[in-house]
Amino acid sequence: MADDGEWMLESIAGYLSSPDWIIPIADFTENNCSVFDDEDENKLTYTEIHQRYKQLVERLLDNYMQEVGITEEQFLEASSALTVNKTLQAVFQPVLATHDFQMFRSLMVQKNMELQLQALHVIKERNGGLPECLTDGVDVMSELEKKEMNILQEVLRRSKEEYELEKADRIQEKDETASTSSSLSEALLGTACDSVNGINGTSQENELKEYGVLKTSPPSCERKTLPALRPPVKGSGPADHMTSEILSDCDSSRRLTDEEGLQQRTEYLKQQRDKLHALKRDQTLKTPTERAPVAPDPRHHTQEISVEEKKKLQKRKHLAEKLKEEVIKK
């Protein structure tokens, strides 16, 4: 009898370590663990999942006993011997979890965390880094907010382009109205721009304002289409400088956005732009004189943001690294 018991114990332990047992149990936990968080309160679905888990274990053990040809009594007797053996106890844990909800819950929570970490790992390996929404710490930034950020970036980018065009136009205008002093005013403008470069205090709000301001001069845009005018060579100098910056900015923003959503975003952007258009047109009708002095300022804001953005990105990456370390250590 003692020999019998020993043989059975080995057989049971062997079964509990075999793929016949491990795979269905692992499948079950992996497929059902996503709802298990480590909140204090349990969800009602936990009970339902626990119930299904019990049924699965019952079915597996039933099959096993039939296959091996042992009775329930024999099985139970042999299993009792497991109490003595610590290493076998661990193997038996998934069985114990059928009757211990707390144990089952902690198994599921643990599995959920494992999968999340794995997912993070995969994302990082594939993209070389974590997306912004993940590096921000806990998922503070929802999908929607992320989209909004991308849209905002796109808006800013376009505003730059628009500003560029407008600037070129203004130069044309100047050339036309005061052709003799054009080179001088150009140079002045250039140095003024450089001197303001160091000024900080950029905010998205500012950017938007700027954008609005830029949109205020549809008439000048129209003028550009006039065939008689030709942009002077000198005027294109600073403009080129700007475009190169814009391009680099565009690159970074493109990297963040995913190709799929681009179409959608452009749609949305167009709407936003139109709204801003309308808004700005109204404003300019009221205060047409303010337009000219405000215009040169924003350009430097746009330069600033790229630097600031980079700093922010650096910070976030750092934070993410820290966070990950903590989680893994835990």
Binding site: E58, L61, S79, S80, L82, F92, T98, H99
Partner: peptide, 18 residues
């Protein structure tokens, strides 16, 4: 199957060693 569960329960009690 119900019996298995009942029986298992007692085993589990023992296994927990409480």
């Amino acid at each position: 199957m119900g019996e298995v569960q009942k029986g298992l329960f007692s085993v589990i009690e023992k296994l927990k060693g409480t």
